[in-house]
């Protein structure tokens, strides 16, 4: 606005000049934004739109180029029982790992934020899983779950419990994967909660304490409302992670037995690079993008009213 006002003495009655001054006003911010715009367009938006376009074509094979198939890839997807099974797995995986890892992260953050003895050690041990690659974490847990010899069975045998085969049985394999994910992600979310907790002035808690609030009331009425922006942020991140972090499947179960531990992105990968049915995989990618966008936007709209921004 200011710039337009300062240009006023030079403005002529011709419309062209008005256009010109508008252009001048928007040019500098546009130039400053252009590096990020170019990068985002090149590596995010154009490929995404191109993917949507490609999802309407068949998989190109040797001498047979891809041809337009309309919604056929999507119809195949809807008709594919494995797709529905995998989607179901992923939904269960998301609605268990997200709340569990957020609650555990919050508890750990509270613990390491209080004046406990050995606090640096606690912080270190809670954060350790974060620096390990998920594929290595999968390997570690593979040994924990090992029937008969694994950590879990060793501990279980001390109490006279029978051996387990968590990853080998259709009923339990998904829970085995869920456990790994919670163990891995909680420490990462803890860091954000810790930062949020440390951003709450000590005075506020002291004021509430003097007014007679119990620790639980301080947490419920002061701490929790003040970290809602972080909770929203982490729940969006956690939702995305529940759909895109699948490295542990490679080192642990390869989605088996019988797709009982396969997640959407793993199945997509299999279609694309094991079965080379890229057209079908592309349709699934589009589905995944749309699904995540809807959930993410939905979370922000749903929670926005309850979130307190400072």
């Amino acid at each position: 606005m200011k710039q337009t006002v300062s240009l006023a003495p030079f403005a002529s009655p011709f419309a062209g000049h008005v256009e010109m001054s508008k252009f001048r006003k928007f040019l500098p911010p546009f130039l400053l934004l252009s590096p990020s715009i170019v990068l985002l367009l090149t590596f995010v938006h154009i490929p995404a739109i191109h993917t949507i376009y490609l999802s309407f074509f068949s998989t190109p094979k040797g001498r047979r180029p891809s041809k337009f198939k309309g919604l056929e890839n999507y119809q195949d997807m809807i008709a594919d029982p494995v797709f529905w099974k995998v989607l179901g797995n992923n939904v269960i995986y998301a609605i268990t790992t997200i709340p569990a890892s957020i609650i555990i992260a919050l508890i750990m953050a509270q613990l390491v934020n209080s004046a406990l003895p050995g606090r640096p050690f606690l912080r270190f041990s809670f954060f350790l899983p974060v620096v390990l690659p998920l594929i290595a974490v999968g390997n570690i847990w593979l040994f924990f779950y090992l029937p008969g010899f694994g950590l879990i069975d060793q501990i279980g045998s001390l109490f006279g419990l029978p051996n387990t085969n968590i990853l080998g049985s259709s009923e339990t394999v998904l829970w085995g994967i869920v456990g790994v994910s919670i163990w891995k992600e909680s420490g990462f979310y803890m860091i954000f909660f810790l930062a949020a907790l440390q951003g709450i002035p000590r005075d506020l808690k002291e004021a509430a304490y003097i007014e007679g609030a119990s620790n639980w009331q301080i947490f419920r009425r002061i701490t929790l409302p003040l970290i809602t922006p972080t909770i929203l942020f982490i729940s969006v991140i956690a939702t995305i992670n529940a759909f895109i972090r699948i490295e542990h499947l490679f080192s642990m179960t390869q989605g088996g037995p019988n797709y009982n531990s396969a997640l959407l992105l793993y199945y997509l990968y299999e279609n694309a690079f094991v079965f080379w049915d890229t057209a079908y995989a592309i349709a699934q990618s589009v589905f995944l993008i749309v699904l995540l966008s809807i959930i993410g936007i939905g979370q922000i709209f749903l929670m926005d009213r309850r979130v307190h921004y400072q």
Partner: peptide, 24 residues
């Protein structure tokens, strides 16, 4: 106690701030 920073609960209205102790 009245704190130097006032220590008002930022997510509550003035009414809720003043009434917090009574509510507890």
């Amino acid at each position: 106690m009245v704190f130097q920073s006032y220590a008002l609960y930022p997510h509550m209205t003035v009414f809720d701030n003043i009434g917090f102790g009574l509510r507890l």
